[in-house]
Design a protein around this nucleic acid. Structure first.
Length: 571
DNA sequence: GCCGTTTTCGGCCCGACTGTTTTCAGTCG
């Protein structure tokens, strides 16, 4: 899939044009197109082959031609040209917060700065202050920005962000001055990767809230502290922003600070068309400036004649139009989840005995758990021989005999070999309730081979679920080069479910792919891949991916009762 | 560069903050 490559090229072009001080709307057009292509649920090669490029929102004649050019030649002339005429140092410097194209270009022109280290040296030597429009303050801020860039390890996982927010929000909630408090931003949208944490509050006494915030024990550094907005950096480098608003603006502010930016732009355009203006303070009538909504998000969406859009959907992936029609899906909910479809026990590489897992799952109000230990092919993870697998089945039977209202489903996470065969014989496979097949080696194989392995595994009538289909590990390993559309089609055709693996660094399938898989007719299974009892909590993350994929409970195996599940996966 | 139940040309979301300015440019979300 070349989607990410093309999106990246368009984003780069946007930066180049910014440095050239080109038409800002043209720059926006490139960014819009890049986002649209990232959000695409299918390979852009396929869209191009069918002549549908201009159906992609934000892609017109020009950009369609550039995409075709890239697909045919592997390069884009416009990009290459801009790249040679734009100094790399300027693009580098723009990664420093507070440094935009204008200042970066100025620094490059006047001081011939070649990289960020050099910029740091010159700023420390006070060579930056005194340039036109730059004083001591700006120089100081550049140094602050550089230290921030150096410490910031890109993004954190959704789990890390949730943990950080859950460390801070309860402390702030205890303050008498805090009337309401919510996480906002990409964290509230439950995005798989989060850059900083945005928190929104209501208070009659903002300054005392700000004081308490910057004095939090985990606040290592205070970036800014104002009356309504402050920013801190935690000891682990995570930036946390806190804002205070009036109660009558809380809903509008929550919409605004939750984003996404593309979603906000879309609803503001929409508002304009019907004579309204939306900002972070409310919804206003254009003709007399009167506020008609703002206290709650429902009120804001309602004023725009939209159904309430759940935060997870606010990515400008069609949710605005569907909300206008009042046809948003009822997203799958925590209460719909009746079981975990992928848990490892101490039989292979898990920490816990089956009985302990059962107790933990009963606590979560589940009705079943699939104990899916590794198979003999994955020796490093203590994969079970056929004989051990039989002993495990016996133990499960014994424990099940003692349980009421809860059931252990016997499972295995089996290996998909190089040729797509499975490392247990059919006789062994059919003794399990649920068989999950997975690739654990050879992710870098060529697309055809990798795809064929998965397709063949799905053709096995005893394989019910494909685990972590793309094999990605955020920050460690990119997704394998796989023809996902072929996988989705075959999943539907063979009644093989595809997993949303809820392991924090996996989240695989991701939101976009899970939605495309469902649209292709595939069933989806959330599995935590838990190896410890804490890992069972990752269901929350898998559920977030499912919601961001627009899934309803009818799309998820986890929403079925044990009996329904066993019936549903039969081939 | 895209886009069109107000348009194929003339728009394109909206506001805050900061710093360096005497009215605004740059940056950010």
């Amino acid at each position: 899939m070349k989607n990410a490559d093309i999106a990246h090229l368009f984003e780069s072009i946007a930066y180049f044009l910014e440095v050239k001080d080109d038409n800002p709307f043209k720059i926006r057009a490139y960014r819009t197109a890049a986002l649209s292509i990232k959000n695409l649920g299918e390979a852009i090669e396929a869209v191009a082959a069918e002549g549908r490029l201009e159906e992609i929102p934000g892609v017109g004649k020009d950009l369609a031609a550039k995409i075709m050019e890239f697909l045919a030649t592997g390069t884009m002339k416009h990009y290459e040209e801009l790249k040679t005429e734009t100094p790399e140092a300027v693009i580098d410097m723009m990664s420093v917060p507070g440094l935009g194209p204008k200042t970066a270009m100025l620094l490059y022109d006047k001081l011939k700065i070649r990289n960020i280290d050099e910029l740091e040296r010159k700023a420390k030597a006070h060579k930056v202050s005194g340039l036109p429009g730059i004083g001591d303050k700006t120089e100081e801020n550049i140094l602050k920005g550089i230290s921030l860039v150096k410490r910031r390890a890109g993004t954190m996982t959704l789990k890390e962000a949730l943990d950080a927010a859950r460390d801070i929000i309860p402390r702030m909630k205890k303050l008498a001055a805090v009337k309401r408090i919510d996480a906002a931003g990409s964290l509230r949208r439950m995005k798989e990767a989060v850059r900083d944490i945005d928190i929104l509050t209501v208070s009659k006494d903002p300054s005392s809230v700000m004081d308490a915030f910057v004095r939090l024990p985990m606040a290592k550094e205070v970036i800014s502290k104002g009356n309504t907005k402050s920013e801190i950096v935690r000891d682990d480098g995570v930036q946390v922003d806190l804002r205070v608003v009036e109660p009558e603006s809380y809903g509008a502010a929550l919409v605004y600070f939750t984003g996404s930016k593309a979603h906000n732009v879309h609803i503001r355009q929409l508002a304009k068309k019907i004579g309204l203006k939306v900002n972070e303070y409310g919804v206003f009538r254009m003709k007399d400036g009167r506020r008609i909504a703002g206290r709650s998000e429902e009120e804001v969406d309602g004023a725009l004649k939209m159904a309430f859009v759940p935060p997870e959907l606010r990515e400008d992936r069609g949710e605005v139009d569907v909300a206008l029609e009042g046809k948003l899906p009822r997203l799958v909910d925590k209460r719909d989840i009746k079981g975990d479809l992928h848990v490892h026990s101490a039989w292979s590489d898990g920490d816990s005995q089956i009985e302990e897992i059962v107790r933990a799952c009963i606590k979560k109000a589940y009705r079943y758990v699939v104990i899916a230990d590794h198979s003999k092919g994955l020796k490093v993870a203590g994969g079970l021989s056929e004989k051990e697998a039989r002993s495990k089945l016996k133990e499960i039977k014994t424990i099940n005999g003692k349980l009421k209202g809860f059931r252990i489903l016997s499972g295995a996470e089996v290996e998909i070999a190089e040729d797509g065969s499975i490392d247990y014989s059919d006789d062994v496979l059919k003794s399990f309730d649920i068989v999950i097949a997975a690739i654990h080696s050879g992710f870098k194989q060529p697309k055809e081979k990798l795809t064929r392995r998965i397709l063949r595994a799905m053709d096995n009538r005893y394989v019910h679920i494909i685990a972590h289909p793309t094999g990605r590990h955020m920050g460690v390993r990119d997704p394998g080069d796989i023809d996902l559309e072929a996988v989705f089609r075959n999943a539907a055709a063979t009644n093989t479910a595809l997993e949303i693996n809820a392991y924090p660094e996996r989240l695989d399938l991701n939101d976009i792919n899970a939605r495309a898989a469902r649209d292709a007719g595939a069933k989806i299974a959330i599995g935590t891949d838990a190896h410890t009892m804490e890992h069972l909590d990752s269901m929350e993350l898998g559920l977030a991916v499912a919601r961001r994929a627009w899934l309803t409970k009818g799309d998820l195996l986890n929403a079925l009762s044990p009996d329904e599940l066993l019936k549903s996966v039969r081939k």
